[in-house]
Computed example of a mutant assay.
Amino acid sequence: MFIPLSDANALRHLRFQYVTVTLIAINMLVYVFFVSGVFGDALEATAYSFGVVPAVYNDYATLPEEYDLIPAWATLITYQFVHGGFLHLVGNMLFLWVFGDNVEDALGHFRFLVFYLLCGVAAALVHDLVHPTSEVPLVGASGAVSGVIAAYLMLHPRVQVWVLVLWRVPLRLRAVWVLSFWVLLQVGMLFGADEQDNTAWWAHIGGLAAGAVLVLVMRRPGVVLFDRDLPRVSQLRGGRSGQR
């Protein structure tokens, strides 16, 4: 597995990625105050109250009164800001930090926020469709972040990305190789994960699909896909040789 560290992809339309940073901050604050144990261990209550519980969403079960705080439909949004552990949080936030700014740049602040939340909603609905009677709460930003990854892959496949492979080997690779591997891993885990695996792989697939579709219609006018506005290496070499 790998960890994204940074990309060589400057913002073109925005001065700063305010929405991306705000989303990261909200996720971190929710973790610190409700999950980390610093202010009391409320993970179970938070997960059941604000996570998506398919059996509850589909009216196969009801929550205990102390957990039944918001309508089931509202959890399609709130679950995206609750994480079950520190590594779960950090992994999602690293991907959002590295890739979210350029997707926000391509869409604009408000449309990126809508895009992000819609990807998370789509992820939860796909998970719910596959596991309609599950009483395990779905939590985390993985579905929404999957949508960001899909959008970045369609927008900037040729950009160089620094990743840490196996937690210790730094490599600089094109985004198309890094993110395509990640996508294939998610698909493979649909069939390779065992019954004890608590990762919502179908939610990742739902987020990916939503991100790939939404970026087509939500990107700024004039923003091209697949880095078609970048000169190819052969063109750069030709230009340099012509100047000699």
Rank of each mutant, 00 (worst) to 15 (best):
M1H: 13
M1S: 11
P4V: 10
A8C: 04
A8S: 11
A8M: 10
A8I: 05
N9T: 07
A10V: 09
R12H: 11
R15D: 15
F16Q: 09
Q17C: 10
L23K: 01
L23P: 02
M28R: 01
L29G: 02
V30G: 06
Y31C: 03
G37L: 04
V38I: 13
V38W: 10
D41S: 13
A42M: 12
Y48D: 03
Y48R: 12
F50L: 12
F50D: 05
G51D: 06
V53C: 12
V56I: 10
D59E: 14
A61R: 07
L63Y: 11
E66V: 14
L69K: 14
I70V: 15
W73C: 06
A74F: 14
L76K: 04
I77M: 11
H83S: 13
H83E: 09
G84P: 02
H88Q: 05
G91E: 05
N92E: 07
F95W: 11
W97E: 03
W97H: 04
F99S: 15
G100S: 08
E104G: 04
E104F: 03
A106K: 02
L107D: 04
L107R: 05
G108E: 04
R111V: 03
F112V: 07
F115M: 01
L117V: 14
C119Y: 03
G120T: 09
V121C: 09
H127R: 06
D128Y: 00
S134D: 09
E135N: 07
P137I: 07
L138C: 00
V139Q: 02
G143N: 03
A144P: 01
A144Q: 01
I149A: 14
A150D: 08
L155K: 06
Q160W: 08
L164R: 03
V165E: 13
W167R: 01
W167E: 11
V169L: 07
P170R: 01
P170I: 10
R172C: 15
L173K: 01
V176H: 09
V176C: 09
W177A: 13
W177G: 01
L179M: 10
S180L: 11
W182A: 14
L185N: 14
L185M: 09
L185R: 08
M189L: 11
D194C: 05
Q196K: 08
Q196S: 15
D197I: 02
D197Y: 04
D197S: 14
N198T: 14
N198A: 13
A200M: 07
A203M: 08
G206A: 08
G207Y: 06
L208A: 03
A209K: 00
A212C: 10
V213F: 10
V213K: 01
L214D: 05
L214T: 05
L216F: 05
V217C: 09
V217W: 15
V217H: 08
V217N: 02
R220Q: 12
F226S: 09
D227P: 03
D227W: 10
D227R: 01
R228H: 10
L230F: 05
V233C: 00
V233A: 12
V233Q: 13
S234G: 12
Q235S: 15
Q235F: 00
L236Q: 07
G239D: 12
R240N: 08
S241W: 06
